[in-house]
């Protein structure tokens, strides 16, 4: 149990990150809440068709929850949805795969349960809103979220200065283990040499300069995504399962053309 004062019944709002089946008709839901941080709770009977809150406790839903502290896991007693991002996100396959990567990252980067992480919560809400409203291309939203989530977790990549000695840049070399761009003197062997435009793109994603980010070319976006993914995987012990499955195409899936030509 947490070191918090035990409270029998508490209320909080949060984003459902993932659900796991439990027993015959129950689910364990992982919620990133505004005040309490990450909570794992049992939702009883939600897999039955007659369940009142089954639909509200799906991933991507922003819910207002009433929970009571259990011996091991908390138990959901009431749930009201504040906004269900699921429907908007699911209708668009690239947005869905990007969204699942957002949720998995948020889950993995908040290691401790019941440790308040308001900034991560606000980041997730922001990312899901952007994905649902399609205000920016889904792959860019994902990379912006990943960069900022790493920054919240204390792993903000150095993009304008040398990650080792702090000498002002821009620098040409990029090292994932060092944590960003590196100057020629500090450069470890095996550093990458990404295009300077790509580093600029990462910087605009991190700072929220969407006009500059959206003006970027596909080649820089792909290179940027690669760097972001490599940094994230470096910091997390296990790789993210959803990241390789992210569909970065803008419209139709890439496999479609090859499948049709097989006939």
């Amino acid at each position: 149990m947490s070191a918090h004062t035990p409270k029998a019944l508490y209320r909080d709002e949060g984003i459902v990150l993932r659900t796991q089946k439990l027993g015959e008709a129950d689910r364990i839901i992982t919620v990133l809440t505004r005040r309490t941080g990450k909570v794992r709770a049992v939702a009883k009977g939600v897999r039955r068709t007659k369940s009142k809150f089954g639909a509200r406790l799906e991933p991507f839903t922003h819910v207002d929850l009433q929970l009571y502290t259990g011996r091991n896991l908390d138990i959901v007693s009431q749930a009201e949805s504040i906004r269900a991002y699921g429907q908007e996100v699911v209708a668009d396959y690239p947005a869905y795969t990007a969204g699942t990567a957002v949720l998995e990252t948020a889950d993995r980067l908040t290691a401790e349960e019941k440790e308040p992480s308001l900034r991560m919560f606000l980041l997730v809400v922001g990312a899901l809103r952007a994905l649902g409203e399609k205000s920016h291309p889904a792959p860019l939203v994902l990379d912006a979220f990943l960069l900022r989530a790493m920054s919240v977790a204390g792993w903000e990549p150095a993009l304008a200065e040398c990650a080792r000695c702090g000498e002002a840049g821009p620098h040409r070399h990029f090292s994932v283990p060092a944590g960003g761009t590196v100057c020629p003197a500090c450069r470890p062997t095996g550093s990458a040499m990404p295009s300077p435009v790509t580093i600029e793109l990462l910087d605009s994603l991190l700072t929220g300069d969407w006009a500059r980010a959206e003006a970027s070319q596909g080649i820089n976006r792909r290179e940027g995504s690669g760097l972001v993914a490599a940094m994230l995987q470096w910091h997390l012990e296990r790789g993210l399962r959803s990241l390789p499955l992210v569909d970065r195409s803008e419209s139709a899936p890439r496999r479609e053309a090859s499948l049709l030509s097989e006939a």
Partner: peptide, 13 residues
């Protein structure tokens, strides 16, 4: 959620 996403994927395909 997973079922809806699969449906959206297949419909597009």
């Amino acid at each position: 959620l997973e079922g809806e996403a699969t449906a959206a994927y297949l419909a597009r395909l």
